[in-house]
Amino acid sequence: MKHETFLKDVAIGIGVVLLLALLFQVITDPGIHDLIIKTCIFGLFALSLNLLVGYLGLVAFGHATGFATGAYVFGLLMQTGTWTIPAAMGVAVVAAAALAAVIGAFCIRAREIYFAFLTLAFQMILYSAIISFVSLTGGDQGLMGGYPKPPFLGIDLSRPFDYYLFVCGVTVICVILLRQVIQSPFGYALRMIRDNHERSYFLGIQVKLYQWIAFVIASALAAVSGVMMSLFVTGAFPNFAYWSMSAEPLFMILLGGMQTFLGPLLGAFILQLLNDLVTEHTRYYGLVLGLVILFFILGLRRGLLDVVWDKVSDRRRKAGTVRPASPVTGDAEARERS
């Protein structure tokens, strides 16, 4: 059963990448390409955060720690001019995971709002460190001057198509991996912890350990998106580690929906589109974004994909084909949200 879903995911993944590759050839507007690239980067960022927020019920307000660590470590290694892209990427992800392992060990001891603040506090310490450590990080100016992008396996990331396909491919691979995690017994345990802390203890689940592992996985995936972002700007900037960078994926989760696996990805797309369209029309982007968020919180009360999914499952139920409420969580409706 599990093996089958994995193969199915892989098949869909390959299909999506091929489709996106075709899209690149059909639509030649590079603005659309950039939109897809940023959707992938931020989509993965938001999806990884949703492992904590949606599946574990932990509101992390410092998710940019992984993102920034990935971007900076990768950027610094590439600037030496001696690293290949896959190697630097591997080290960047491992570094972010290691940092998350340390930070996570402290943070998972706290609950709810305290957890949110503690993750934020660690992120702000990282931000302060990046700003102060000028000789290494370039301080507030960021890593400047660019870096070479040596081709590997015939892929030359300085070519737009190669970079585009690389981002799409890496994102799809990570999404498939994330789905594997969520559908594994480990993933089910996370949802059980979210829904009923005490019962999980009684069932012998090592709650803190599981939370810690999820925290590390989420940070590692955030680092992957950070690496792709670094490649996008050929550098790294301190606002990658600023608190607002942690707020963005939370918006995406809110906009797209946290109950549905791909909700945050849709949220990332909406937010990017909103950004592109709104900034062309007005400089009061914050005002517009704020109103959109209010609409989602008070009007829709959940993300867009959640709304769609609820509609679909409602119709199915009426038609008599009873299925779980959500394709992944299976118990979305069990979780009352006001």
């Binding site: 509101v59 918006f251 968020i293």
Partner: peptide, 20 residues
């Protein structure tokens, strides 16, 4: 009665709106 995320984002929306 919403979760912490919703409360934080509601407040954040007001930060953005008031700043503008």
């Amino acid at each position: 009665r919403g979760d912490v995320l919703v409360q934080i984002l509601l407040c954040y929306a007001f930060i953005l709106i008031l700043d503008d």
